[in-house]
Amino acid sequence: MSRFTDLFMGMLGATPKKPEKVSEKVQKIMFLKYEDKDRYIKEKLHARAHHATSHKWRNRRWAVLIATNLLFVLSFSLDIQILEGALTASRFVGFHLIDLNSALQVTLAHKYVIVNLLIGTFTVFLLWVLLGGRTFCSWVCPYHLVAEWFEALHLKLVEKKIVTDHEFHRGARTVFWILFALMALITGYTVFETVSPTGILSRALIYGPGLALGWVFLLLLFEVFWSRRAWCRYICPIGLTYGVVGAISPLRVSYNVERCFHEGDCRKVCLVPHVLDVTIKGRAAEENMSLGPDCTRCGLCVDICPTDALRYEIKGLSKLL
């Protein structure tokens, strides 16, 4: 299979595999690392010791996410009609914007395409093709931010051995995507929108809290005491929909095998660590490789990498600062 097919199947839940063929340049790089092992280890320890902890991309992401959702709130409360509606369906200075997964659910439920829905969907489709589909998850979705804060609590409890993290098969998300689509088609009701913490939080911020926030709180408790980031990793169909859309995005996080010391810190902080499988020794087929479509472009791996082996890039252009 081609690398694109492997990455796409990985997004659906397939286990990452070792490359069938490794370029001569990568073979040479890995040979030199093993040949001069002492120097390699010394450089690795030096890089980690002198790498200042950075939250540059995380802080930028939080700022964009908070500003986007705050604009919804201000537009409604001040009636300034800049960004009306909520994340599931909105209008930006008159342009319709429809969440792609919500549009799919509505179309399946009603069994016909609404014109405004088609216009709004096309606009959002182009936006996330350019930015990388799952960028929505980490740079816009309010539940992602709240879950990220609660994840810190989960990790502390795990460290103190108060709780144990339970993992599920990543293919569960694909199964849930199909189930939610079938429920909309069969019942004529957008079932997912009723339970989606993304929509619930977005509407609560704009129009005020409701009983549905209780469901969001239960999800967060489940993630704190049982399974790390369970909703985003194993259930939410939004991430899968946007991953498919952004598969050909020019904006990406790229990996350079020569600069990598394979210490694994990047995989520890990643929401979808399977996209960083390429950073494991022997898993890189080329010297420079982009991460898969399931990457949320959150920047946590870029911030933590001590040698700039991971960085943001626009395909064909230099890295982003």
Rank of each mutant, 00 (worst) to 15 (best):
S202P: 01
W226C: 13
F222V: 01
L220F: 06
V216N: 05
V216S: 05
G208V: 02
A212Q: 10
L218N: 08
G208H: 02
G210K: 04
W231I: 10
S227Q: 07
G214Q: 01
T190K: 07
I186V: 13
E223N: 10
R228S: 13
G188W: 12
T194E: 10
W215T: 01
F225A: 06
S202R: 02
F217K: 13
L220Y: 00
E193A: 09
T198Q: 14
G188H: 06
I206S: 00
G210A: 03
A204W: 07
V224W: 08
G208Q: 04
L205P: 08
S227T: 08
E223M: 00
E223H: 00
Y207C: 12
A212D: 15
V216W: 06
T194F: 14
L221D: 06
R229H: 14
I206T: 00
S196M: 09
F217T: 09
S202G: 11
L211P: 14
R228F: 13
E223D: 15
Y207D: 08
P197W: 06
L220R: 07
R228D: 11
V224M: 08
L213V: 02
L201Q: 01
L211H: 03
A230Q: 02
E223A: 00
T194R: 13
A212E: 13
R228H: 15
A204L: 01
A184G: 12
T190L: 04
G214H: 10
F225E: 04
P209F: 09
L201Y: 04
G208Y: 02
S202V: 03
F225Y: 11
L218Q: 11
G199W: 14
I186P: 13
R229M: 14
T194A: 14
S196Q: 11
G188I: 15
S227M: 03
A184M: 07
